[in-house]
């Protein structure tokens, strides 16, 4: 299978700070690739490079086998790379249907004037929400009335609906309860089965193990390597994320509960 995105030797420097010191990862369609790393490991910088927010200082991005230059987020969105940010996925004051079509509003022409096609938007929103297992009171229900997990699910459904080939999820489960996390993970599973490449950023090993096909650990701007599902145990991942040594000592004193 050909990778859909290849990140080759990506380096990103902010002034004198080296945020990424040569990261190489391949992402495959229909797979959930978990990027793990502790705070400050470079996860956010890395995905922002993929989604066109940052330009890499060195290194190459290959998209569907061709070298790609993303000058701003719109370029990567147009190419089919959608990013769902943890807090910035949805606008709570707006209705689900207005959120769903934000930036992609359907248009119908009346007397040559371009109007927002609310009927089409409402219909599609209700259908997509049902498919994702969310029951709305109506398409005009405000996103603020949804739970955190449902908001993430709406954002994922939106990205898929608008033809994302690569879906980047930035810590989608870190602020959620147990049940909501399960819902989001189930959504990730559905999306992966549609042949979309999912990039799942997390620092929770258990969430990663639940849906991941491949695992890459970032530490201090570098990759610790990539492992396939079944090749690595949760404990090993945990140790790699924390840089091994220190956490092992800490864990001893905490009785292996971390």
């Amino acid at each position: 299978m050909e990778p859909i995105i290849q990140m080759k030797g990506i380096e990103k420097h902010f002034g004198s700070v080296i945020a990424l010191a040569g990261v190489t990862v391949d992402f495959y369609p229909g797979e959930c690739h978990c990027l793990l790393g502790d705070n400050g490991a470079g996860k956010s910088t890395f995905i922002k490079t993929m989604s066109g927010v940052h330009k890499p200082t060195h290194g190459e991005i290959m998209f569907e086998g061709k070298p790609m230059q993303f000058d701003d987020p719109r370029d990567s969105i147009a190419a089919g790379i959608a990013t769902v940010y943890q807090d910035l996925a949805m606008i709570p004051l707006m209705s689900v249907s207005r959120n769903f079509f934000m930036g992609n509003e359907p248009i119908k022409k009346i007397a040559g004037l371009r109007f927002f096609d609310h009927e089409h938007a409402n219909e599609v929103t209700m259908r997509e929400m049902r498919n994702m297992g969310i029951n709305l009171r109506g398409p005009d229900q405000a996103v603020g009335t949804l739970s955190g997990g449902e908001r993430q699910t709406v954002a994922i459904a939106r990205a898929v609906h608008f033809g994302a080939k690569v879906l980047i999820l930035d810590e989608p489960t870190s602020a959620l309860g147990v049940r909501q996390t399960a819902n989001v993970l189930a959504t990730v599973d559905k999306v992966r089965k549609q042949g979309i490449s999912v990039v799942f950023i997390t620092h929770n090993v258990r969430h990663a193990m639940a849906v991941g096909d491949r695992f890459t650990v970032l530490n201090r701007g570098k990759t610790y390597g990539t492992a396939m599902k079944g090749e690595i145990s949760p404990e090993e991942l945990q140790d790699m994320m924390a840089g091994g040594q220190e956490l092992a000592t800490l864990e001893g004193s905490l009785g292996g509960t971390v």
């Binding site: 996925a89 606008i91 992609n104 371009r114 609310h118």
Partner: peptide
């Protein structure tokens, strides 16, 4: 209420950064 631009007005005021990420 009835145009694409109107949706952008709501989005710009609701959360400018989220709106930018969505291409507004």
């Amino acid at each position: 209420t009835r145009t694409r631009f109107g949706n952008w007005i709501f989005a710009a005021g609701g959360d400018a950064q989220a709106a930018r990420y969505a291409g507004v």
